[in-house]
């Protein structure tokens, strides 16, 4: 097997990871940042699960007549990661809703501008 065929899943994992990272750094919209964070997270799922696959193997459910099973341990770890990931997403979105309530915007530059304006006029409250 050539390097392109044997390492393709790793390269797509890397691409998804940096796509998520790019969205988190470059995009100012807070909802979009959280979606970028989710994409980063799913790339980690792939990083764990893909090496556990054995071609010709079956899912790790023990049965008569099957000898080759894919690796069950990454599956266990990632099951936990998915549930924790959706919990952090829910918490992040709740904070975004609160920020929108306080600032009237979910764009990072507008929030920072509002903060700077508030610092310049400390006597006035928002």
């Amino acid at each position: 097997m050539t390097a392109a065929a044997s390492h393709y899943s790793y390269w797509i994992t890397v691409l998804l990871m940096v796509a998520g990272l790019y969205i988190v750094i470059a995009r100012g919209n807070l909802v979009k940042k959280l979606i970028g964070l989710s994409i980063f997270q799913t790339s980690v799922y792939l990083l764990y699960i893909a090496p556990g696959k054995l071609i010709g193997g079956t899912p790790p459910i023990l049965a008569e007549g099957f000898r080759l099973y894919s690796n069950p341990l990454p599956h266990v770890l990632i099951l936990t990661a998915i549930v924790v990931g959706v919990a952090t997403l829910a918490l992040g979105l709740a904070i975004v809703v609160r920020i929108r309530e306080a600032y009237g915007s979910i764009e990072e530059d507008e929030i920072l501008a509002a903060d700077r304006a508030a610092e310049r006029r400390p006597a006035e409250s928002r």
Binding site: L34, Y45, G52, T58, I61, I78, V83, V86, A90, L93
Partner: peptide
């Protein structure tokens, strides 16, 4: 990739609950 348990969780939690939370 033979990760059937994870696939079921991802389809229900990742595609279902996450999308509902984001739309909300």
């Amino acid at each position: 990739l033979d990760a059937v348990d994870v696939a079921m969780t991802e389809a229900s939690v990742g595609a279902g609950i996450s999308t509902v939370l984001l739309l909300g």
